[in-house]
């Protein structure tokens, strides 16, 4: 049985899990929802707020709202606590438009630690990448989760 309080072997986790896609699904964006998203955020340009605009597209940070179906890869060790959201980064590459089928694939992009007198924090960065039907990259969104390990006595 796994000891959830044991320190994580970060190097082993990196070798085993980095850059392996563990979650994939398809989604299609709806025009009015995109416009509502943009308007609620305070965007005013017609290309974000008016579905009739010829250049209508999702607001740049939309990809941060796409949620993984799986939080961690199969076989990933359990640890005490759920972890806390440590931040999000979104990197749009090409506009996302309504009615276009988008494939979202997630892999673990990085695992790293920060240590101090109070113990060690382990950060997991999951990267979700988005492609269109021609496998053109539309952008990516990183989600960082941090867990704080208890000092070992």
């Amino acid at each position: 049985m796994t000891d959830v309080n044991a320190p994580l072997d970060v190097e082993s986790l990196r070798e085993q899990f980095l850059n392996v896609v563990f979650d994939e699904y398809k989604l299609t964006l709806e025009a009015q929802a995109l416009a509502d998203y943009a308007i609620a955020c305070g965007e005013t340009a017609a290309k974000f707020t008016n579905p009739e605009d010829p250049d209508f597209q999702a607001p740049p940070t939309i990809a941060s709202s796409f949620q993984q179906r799986k939080r961690y890869p199969d076989g990933f060790p359990t640890f005490k606590g759920l972890g806390m959201d440590a931040g999000k980064a979104v990197a749009p590459d090409k506009p996302m438009r309504p009615g276009v089928e988008i494939t979202a694939r997630t892999h673990m992009h990085d695992i790293y630690t920060k240590s101090g007198r109070s113990g060690r924090m382990v950060f997991f960065v999951n990267r979700m990448e988005f492609t269109d039907a021609d496998n053109i990259l539309l952008g990516s969104a990183d989600t960082s989760i941090v867990i704080r390990e208890k000092p070992q006595t």
């Binding site: 609620a40 305070g42 749009p92 990183d142």
Partner: peptide
């Protein structure tokens, strides 16, 4: 994040946002 992007567009309407990295 969306507020931050909107603020950038209010300042520079033609700005193309390439990254928003937030904590």
């Amino acid at each position: 994040q969306g507020f931050l992007s909107a603020m950038i567009h209010h300042w520079a309407p033609a700005a193309e946002v390439k990254l928003v990295d937030t904590v």
